[in-house]
Design a protein around this nucleic acid. Structure first.
Lengths: 111, 111
DNA sequence: AAATATTATCGTATTTATACGATGAATCAA
DNA sequence: TTGATTCATCGTATAAATACGATAATATTT
């Protein structure tokens, strides 16, 4: 963006937007699915399943990890990523909370 | 993105990502709040409240509308935007559905 | 009709995101 | 130690997002 106006919003708005941002790419949603379904925190499996290069997958994993949605350990030639359930549940709670807050004003709608 | 790999994911993954994308900017979350709280589908009110220029707000409104999260009519010097509750509820349902599907595999987590 | 008010759109500049090849780092196996 | 394997990171190219001033469009008011 041209100028960083992002910081002029509330912390809650920024946090919710950041959470949505991480899930705003189909690859990252697909990765979350793989992590949930593949028993044992598979790593290179993601590269096999997704139509993306290894470097790209690694980059998406990094973003998911930075945002806290997943956690993982790397041990030399192997890595082990898993969904951070505590964080995910917290994020979803906040996300739904925002929506519920909006809904409280639902009767004000005029069109 | 360099090459559009986005289309190689499932429709569900693309739809969920698109929904998240619209809400991935604090300005658009803030706009949703204003639309919910301001009685009467205020228009220029958003420009007053947000730290953004009128052109930028209009652009964000356009994206929210394109995604279906809001609906509105423009009548000359006035506009009237409102949250599209049916769409929002549907999106939230799908979003939560995805999360629930992930959670079903929660016991598989290994780290 | 002319002036006013409000919003959309255009053009453009800048930042960020996305993608991948190439390379580096770390571990295991031989 | 050498080779193989796996993943992260670097560098880079391209596309998309973000922001705003300027301007056009539309309806109301005078």
């Amino acid at each position: 963006m041209a100028i960083a106006k992002t910081t002029e919003f509330t912390q809650q708005e920024q946090d919710l937007a950041a959470f949505a941002k991480v899930l705003s790419h189909p690859a990252r949603i697909a990765i979350m699915k793989v992590l949930a379904n593949e028993n044992g925190c598979i790593c290179g499996r993601i590269v096999e399943i997704l139509p993306l290069a290894q470097a790209t997958v690694s980059q998406h994993l990094k973003e998911l990890k930075n945002a806290g949605l997943i956690k993982g350990t790397i041990e030399g030639p192997k890595s082990c990523y898993c969904i951070n359930w505590e964080a995910m549940e917290s994020f979803m709670k906040d996300f739904n909370g925002m929506f519920s807050a909006l809904q409280l004003q639902k009767e004000k709608s005029c069109c």
